[in-house]
């Protein structure tokens, strides 16, 4: 199947959003499947907590379904969905009284994840700053270009580029340092 190739193609996401706006739940299901990792990853990068990220992914797609009519074709559909995610996540952050140890990613949350997946996520959570983490995750999973990430996060392109570079260097160094850690 060419699902991997179809994934995150803006034209296709566009069509899916249009159909969703017309109430086509199959299109909505496809949209969910193809963009949930980006939404979840972005939320996780902001909230650093799997349960919260799952909640917000849910809330985000409910919002996407209800607001699909307001989506304008001219926008990048992925960026639009992620803007909704970002707003919801920032609300949630504000609602948290203060981030306690429990709200931070911990391994028991990883559930059925493989050791490598856990390690990657834990390092993203521990080693990167908030912005670095969002940039690294967005670039890895959303298919957004650096300048789209810059505009989504409201920071200059040059900052996005340098933070992206720094985050990758940190992660790569950690990876090389501890191939055997688990």
């Amino acid at each position: 199947m060419d699902t991997a190739k179809r994934r995150l193609d803006p034209a296709r996401l566009n069509a899916l959003l249009q159909s969703t706006a017309e109430g086509d739940t199959d299109a909505f299901a496809a949209l969910y499947e193809e963009t949930k990792a980006a939404v979840f990853g972005f939320c996780l990068s902001i909230l650093r907590n799997r349960a919260d990220a799952e909640d917000l992914t849910h809330d985000c797609f409910v919002r996407v379904f209800l607001a699909a009519e307001q989506y304008r074709r001219a926008q990048n559909p992925m960026a639009w969905v992620l803007t909704i995610s970002r707003n919801l996540c920032l609300h949630r952050l504000r609602d948290r009284e203060r981030p306690t140890e429990e709200t931070v990613w911990a391994d028991e949350e990883a559930g059925t994840l493989s050791a490598e997946d856990r390690l990657v996520l834990r390092r993203c959570m521990d080693a990167l700053s908030d912005e670095e983490r969002s940039i690294a995750v967005l670039h890895a999973v959303s298919g957004l270009k650096f300048r789209e990430i810059a505009s989504l996060l409201g920071i200059p392109l040059s900052t996005v580029l340098s933070k992206y570079r720094r985050s990758m260097k940190k992660l790569r160094d950690l990876w090389q340092e501890g191939e055997t850690e688990g």
């Binding site: 990792a37 799997r50 990883a110 997946d117």
Partner: peptide, 9 residues
């Protein structure tokens, strides 16, 4: 990263 996020989502 993409694989880990994908699997966790």
């Amino acid at each position: 990263i993409a694989a880990a996020v994908e699997h966790a989502s």
